[in-house]
Design a protein around this nucleic acid. Structure first.
Lengths: 117, 117
DNA sequence: CCATTAAGTCTGTAATACAGACTTAATGCC
DNA sequence: GGCATTAAGTCTGTATTACAGACTTAATGG
């Protein structure tokens, strides 16, 4: 059991709330995991099927989001767990509403190939 | 002139605006660069002095944000350039307002050591 | 009790990040 | 014009992180 990734989430001491938030939200997979959590996803394999993320990275990001206090693992250990949004996690909904507005208005879809998550 | 980084910004074909936006905003440095751009920063060395980012990565992210249409380099080539927010770039302000509210309410500051960007 | 499945870990390889030195062109000053 | 300064990078070598995909382990269902 070599603990190869341990950093997970290191909180920031920045006085700027965006600086602190960027440690959590400033990651492509974390943003997508939280989007699906807001849509009701709670299972490891659920996220795995929704987006092209590897098991190792999903495991890492879920642990990060738990440590940062946005998700809660239930039960805390063992295999068949649910990941649920905490109050802090649910509170990102307004951020996602604004990102949705902005993305719709200003980030055009790439022509084609395969549409990904 | 080995062009070692060329990917820069690859737009997403996802129908979900958050999926598309995550290619741009889902990066710690991009979030911080845009924050400072909203506060008026326009120069390469300005960002370099405001946050502990390396020159190579700053160069890469500014190019990405230009390619994604949030910043405009002026002049397009040459040395002493200004990076200015485009309309799409300025339009992220409401997102940052929500992140600020959320960060203030739900992301506590780490105890101490050095406060970073 | 046994098969299945959910939630991981492990291994090797490829990509990215980093610090810090180096380069090159525009600017200011005389 | 000539020359120092500075702004905006690139280059090199090393360390971290990501990735695909096989393997492991424990809970569940019958």
């Amino acid at each position: 059991m070599l603990e190869r990734h341990m950093p997970k989430y290191k909180p920031s001491a920045s006085p700027c709330p965006i600086g602190r938030a960027s440690r959590i939200l400033g990651d492509r997979w974390a943003m997508l995991i939280l989007r699906d959590a807001l849509l009701g996803e709670t299972r490891f394999d659920g996220w795995l099927n929704r987006m092209p993320i590897s098991r190792a990275v999903l495991s890492d990001r879920l642990a990060m989001l738990c440590k940062a206090g946005l998700l809660q693992r239930d039960p805390p250990d063992g295999k068949r767990a649910l990941y649920r949004l905490t109050e802090a996690g649910k509170a990102i909904a307004p951020i996602y509403a604004e990102i949705t507005k902005w993305g719709d208005a200003h980030v055009p879809r790439a022509p084609s190939s395969e549409a990904q998550a």
